[in-house]
Design a protein around this nucleic acid. Structure first.
Length: 310
DNA sequence: CCATGTCCCTGCAAGC
DNA sequence: TGCTTGCAGGGACATG
């Protein structure tokens, strides 16, 4: 389940292989990958539309915000060094991007054209006719599509990612703003952490890890929690994801494979996620598993005190 | 507007 | 053994 660290890990690999290349062709093996999980009825013209829209495009670079990744597209001219004005169709001011969301089980892999297709390959981009970027996704919770780039929180982002907030690893991230917004929430803090419009990039694994490290109960209500506790949670989320990125991301179900085909490992550093019934690494108490917002949630009932509100 | 619930999809594990 | 059932989860969307 790729979250920010895993997606960033993939982005780096993808950028190395794709930046500066030209898309010489594209294939969509499963049209459902072009839609979202709630828009699965894909017009047949969308398949050829996708291929024709990306073929001939020049990939400037691979970018990311939260768990959303995209290839910014531009003219195939040699880029100069600095941005000057807002000249029309400058390669430095891309207007289109190819959005890729990995969903639950998405992988991006680089292959040579002749190599056997993985069973769950959903889409393929040919790069300079000598490499292929393949989007493999077992569960089809991910999606890919061409979108206009629009301004959001100081950057150009794909239109469908306009609503998500900056993630903790980007310059526009403002911890004080996030804590202030978080403090208005009356839902469980675990659910709030998964709200990508508040902070992006945090998924189910790192939400549990951040709460454990900050000593905050997943059912605590932000609006009734001390600001310094909320700050600790946001700081913990930032730290745990930075640490995960440093070792290549999390993987324990073999579904996540980075662009070079190797798994990233961080599971040994997980302190509570997936440890229901086991002893807390800090105090030995049995880790409890509950459901919050429809997601499996793990916590230590001693290290993360049950909030008592009146 | 805010919060909560449902659905999408597949493969695996558990139960009978 | 072989079937059925339950479970996992990110995000779009519907509902309260």
């Amino acid at each position: 389940m790729p979250e920010l660290p895993e997606v960033e890990s993939v982005r780096r690999g993808v950028d190395e292989w794709t930046a500066g290349t030209t898309i010489t062709g594209a294939e969509v093996a499963d049209p459902r990958i072009l839609g979202t999980t709630s828009q699965r009825r894909i017009d047949p013209s969308a398949v050829s539309g996708f291929a024709s829209a990306v073929t001939g495009a020049h990939i400037l670079k691979a970018e990311r915000r939260g768990k959303f990744m995209w290839l910014s597209l531009g003219e195939a001219t040699a880029p100069s060094s600095e941005t000057a004005g807002s000249g029309a169709r400058s390669p430095l001011t891309p207007e289109l991007g190819i959005l890729v969301h990995l969903g639950m089980s998405g992988q991006l892999r680089i292959h040579s054209p002749g190599e056997e297709l993985h069973r769950h390959t959903r889409a393929v981009l040919r790069l300079d006719s000598e490499r292929e970027l393949r989007f493999v996704d077992q569960r089809i919770f991910g999606h890919i599509g061409v979108q206009p780039l629009v301004h959001g929180y100081g950057r150009l982002v794909p239109a469908s990612a306009i609503h998500i907030a900056p993630d903790p690893l980007e310059a526009a991230f403002d911890p004080e703003r996030v804590v202030a917004e978080l403090a208005k929430k009356r839902t469980a803090i675990k659910a709030a952490l998964l709200d990508q419009t508040l902070v992006s990039g945090i998924g189910n694994i790192y939400a549990d890890e951040a709460l454990f490290r900050a000593g905050v109960h997943p059912l605590a209500v932000p609006a009734r929690t001390r600001k310094n506790r909320l700050t600790a949670v946001i700081e913990s989320a930032t730290t745990v994801m930075s640490d995960a990125l440093a070792v290549g991301g999390t993987s324990f179900d073999a579904l996540y494979v980075n662009v070079n085909g190797e798994s990233g490992y961080f599971d040994r550093a997980l302190l509570v996620y997936g440890r229901g019934g086991q002893e807390c690494v800090r105090c030995g108490t049995e880790i409890v598993k509950i459901t919050v917002g429809g997601r499996g949630t793990h916590y230590c009932p001693v290290c993360q005190k049950v909030p008592r509100y009146r």
